Amino acid sequence: MQKICSIKIGQPFSMKEIKMQTRNELFHAAQQKIAAYRQQAIMTAEAKRSAAYSNPLVVEANKAHNRAGLNLAKAAAIGGNIEKAKKELVEANQALEDTLKQAGYSDASFSPIYHCPKCQDTGTKDGVPCECVANVARCLRRDEINAASPLGLCQFNTFQVERYSDQPEKELGISPRKYMEKLLRYCQNYAEKFSQNSPNLLFMGRTGLGKTHLALAIADSVLGKGYDVLYTSSAALAAQLGKEHFNYANNDEWLTACQEADLLILDDLGTEYITPLTISVLYELINTRMLTHRPTIYTTNITDQNIFVARYTEKVSSRMLGGCKMFKFFGDDQRLK
């Protein structure tokens, strides 16, 4: 797992549009990385051996060992004192070992050091994929999300509820701080008990109120439990799906990746360029994830449900609004603080 950077909430972060891999692509990428680990381990071990055998004393001891082996082979082939040849080979072998030890090398010095001792970086154990493949795939996914979002900054323990007002909010009946404390606990519990039966979530509110932070904190926790999590901004998704629609060679890979992820974070709904294609693909994505019981977390700055319906059509918005637990965020822009 990657180390979490200790950077204050509100520090600017540059969002990038990064293409996420499908589950199968991620699995193959993990296998390739593990194969590279194995190759590197073997090459490193060979380099150590070469360095050891360039030592003048080791060179001489190795020559004596080779001569003894050759003498034994000759004795066996054309006749000779085999027992004497065997004894000389044993002595030469011991002399070589002693010389290597004097030069600072042990029996294990030339053995490859694998990342995964269980499968020796082959990626399989007892005929099935080793758990290291899933671990590497999870790290690769984390790298992808980190490149596209401030995942490394957005943890539950960095969500500072004290930044929110402690003055009662008329619409809430309590202060935004109390409300956000409850919402934080709900999100922590959601992540802790995450499963296919977890509900979809819709975070609504003005810019800078912590919607993306909490969504990514859930993603980070769920990812750590071994689930496949995919993050994308709504604008990046719409742009990429538009490109794929007119590029038949890609076969809608992003849509597939979004459909099959255990948890999808669809950030900043309302920032994408709306076209009939966008609406059609968004409907397909939402409907497929609902039918296959794969939870989705949406965030949006749109707080008026009528605007939501007008923008996404009743067909799409009814599935989002009706199929989600909705949470409205209150308070002042935390980024400005």
Rank of each mutant, 00 (worst) to 15 (best):
Y298C: 01
N247G: 01
N71I: 03
R335A: 03
N81C: 03
T288L: 04
A148G: 08
D304G: 10
V309R: 15
Y312R: 03
A137E: 02
E17W: 07
A77D: 06
G10V: 07
K101W: 10
L230C: 13
E46F: 08
F156M: 03
K8Y: 08
D220A: 14
M290E: 01
K86V: 08
S111Q: 13
D332Q: 06
N287Y: 05
D98I: 10
V58Q: 07
A310C: 05
E253M: 04
K101M: 13
Q155V: 04
S317R: 06
M290A: 12
S54N: 05
K86Y: 05
G104H: 09
N247T: 12
K87F: 11
V222M: 08
F110R: 02
S111L: 15
L214Y: 11
N146T: 10
P117H: 11
V229L: 05
A249N: 12
S317K: 04
D166Y: 02
I274L: 11
E171M: 11
R163G: 07
V309L: 08
G123L: 05
A238E: 00
G323Y: 09
M326T: 15
F203C: 07
L241M: 14
D252F: 08
I174D: 10
L223W: 07
I7L: 13
A257H: 13
T207Y: 12
V90N: 06
E272D: 12
V309S: 07
Y231S: 05
Q102A: 15
R289T: 09
K225L: 06
K328N: 13
K8I: 14
K8E: 15
Q31P: 00
V229H: 04
L70H: 12
Q188K: 15
V59C: 02
C187G: 03
A134L: 14
G210A: 08
K328R: 15
A29W: 05
Q167I: 14
T44D: 10
A239P: 00
I34L: 09
K16G: 02
P56M: 00
T124I: 05
D126R: 14
V133F: 03
A45V: 12
Q39W: 00
D228A: 04
F329S: 06
T275S: 15
Q94L: 14
A217F: 04
C116W: 09
L100H: 02
K325C: 06
H213G: 13
G123H: 05
I18H: 11
A51D: 08
R294P: 00
M290R: 08
L96F: 09
S234L: 07
V161K: 00
E181P: 00
H115T: 09
T212M: 06
E253H: 02
C154T: 03
R319E: 15
I7H: 07
A77G: 01
K86I: 10
C154G: 04
Q160L: 05
R335W: 02
R163A: 11
G208Q: 01
V59I: 13
Y114H: 15
K84W: 09
S234A: 15
F203N: 08
F308K: 04
C324Y: 06
I4G: 00
P150G: 03
N66P: 00
K74F: 14
H213Y: 10
K225A: 07
N247D: 15
L201V: 14
A103W: 04
K337Q: 13
A51G: 00
L100G: 08
F13W: 12
S14W: 01
G80A: 03
